[in-house]
């Protein structure tokens, strides 16, 4: 089974920025395409987070949040397509929340809501 080291792929143990999140998103899309197009079908791949130090919600939103909106996947559906290993429990929960948030935001956008204005009154601290 193919294993991708996220730390090696992105060249950093600090998984923080939007740019790195997008880079991971693009890699996942590439892998999914390869799996979908191969004959016979390949086994599911593994995203291995071993060696990371910390991860931000920006990174999660731009990688997994965006992935699940693009594919219209729930968390459960995403897990049918690849494995995630060596992410601590708290960060796994943050990953799942990033997907819930992304799907909710997508629904708000589909209703024509300007998210900056919408959240402006919520962010008032």
């Amino acid at each position: 089974m193919k294993t991708i080291s996220v730390v090696s792929l992105l060249g950093t143990t600090a998984l923080l920025t939007a740019e790195k999140g997008i880079e991971l998103f693009e890699k996942i899309i590439e892998l999914l395409k390869a799996h979908h197009e191969s004959s016979p079908p390949l086994e599911k791949f593994i995203l291995n987070f071993e060696g990371y130090e910390y991860v931000s919600s920006t990174f999660m939103n731009r990688s997994f949040g965006r992935l699940c909106v693009d594919k219209d996947w729930t968390v459960a559906k995403m897990k049918q397509h690849f494995f995630i290993e060596n992410l601590i429990e708290d960060d796994m929960e943050d990953l799942e929340l990033s997907i819930l948030n992304a799907r909710e935001r997508s629904k708000l956008l589909a209703k024509g809501i300007d998210l900056r204005k919408h959240y402006a009154s919520v962010y008032n601290y």
Binding site: N61, R62, N101, R116, Y119, Y125
Partner: peptide
């Protein structure tokens, strides 16, 4: 302060698109 926790924890995924949260969330994480 509250704004620090909100920008760091980003409970609504605002760092996906909002300029200030996108800028501050990774900085506060670091």
């Amino acid at each position: 302060d509250t704004n620090t926790i909100v920008y760091l924890n980003d409970p609504f995924g605002e760092s996906e698109s909002d300029g200030l949260v996108t800028e501050l969330n990774p900085k506060l994480s670091r």
